[in-house]
Amino acid sequence: MISNILKKSNSLFLRSTLSSNKFTNVTILRNSLFLNNNNNDNNTNIKQTYNKINFFSTTVPNQNEKIELKQEQIKQEQQQQPEQQPEQQTNKINNEIELKIKILENSLKYVNSYGWTSEAVSKACIEMGYPPITQGILGEDSAYELALYFVTKCNTDLMIKLSDAENSEQQLLSGLSKKEKVKLALKLRLSMIKPFIGRWSEAMQLLANPKNIVNSSPSMLTLVDNIWYLVGDKSSDFDWYAKRGLLIALYTSAELFMLSDTSVDHSNTWRFVDDRVDDLIKTIKFKNDIEETVGITLNTFLQKIKK
């Protein structure tokens, strides 16, 4: 475990030095300090490892005790591993997943201060009592993982809210038409990014990055599929694709519109959504009318051929 942490800290260190030229001098200073410490102390392997971790992570001295405690826990876990039973294996996996979710959840609190960056994740790790390099378990790009987690969470929350409203005894949605339900769903989803509206352009950039688009697309497809499903749309031919494609375009344009919307409580965005949904419904009806006309014409043509 310690060697893995060191490897990840090395990669983080290299990345930070390459990304920011301004801090080159600071890096040189750190190097000299590290060399001095290394010469002076006759540390054991454990303490040397601890110093290295401290050097790369730039932790506050107050964190020293916590780091030592974590190291002891890591050793205990390693000793206990051979004794684990299959059920405990599942628990271990779940614990790791829960740790990731907790880190990401805490990171959201720092997004408005530090943006959708690995720095926000570092702050969350520190607050939870872990060294900042713990974010390595999220993968190479913790900033992207943070944005993806937020989008996935919003999609899930939206589905839960809509399905609860649909099934509640009050029948909150029963009086609404399908069009109104789509509008409501889009507005609910857009209002979920209100807390981060100032930084949302950064998240959109991360999600739309070519190297990330493959992982980001399913969350958008899931969103539009959930919306059409929950408003009760039961089309199963090519309309299925047409409706979802149109809704993706609509939601994306509404999101972009919202970024530059300075009206009170985003009222312009809500009006934008209303108008675009009306256009969408008109487009679908127009398409169906065209299909009917073509069908009638074709039947007439075939009848003439037959005779």
Partner: peptide
């Protein structure tokens, strides 16, 4: 969804 997002990594 949550499991699928992270188990692979």
């Amino acid at each position: 969804n949550i499991i699928r997002s992270y188990c692979t990594k």
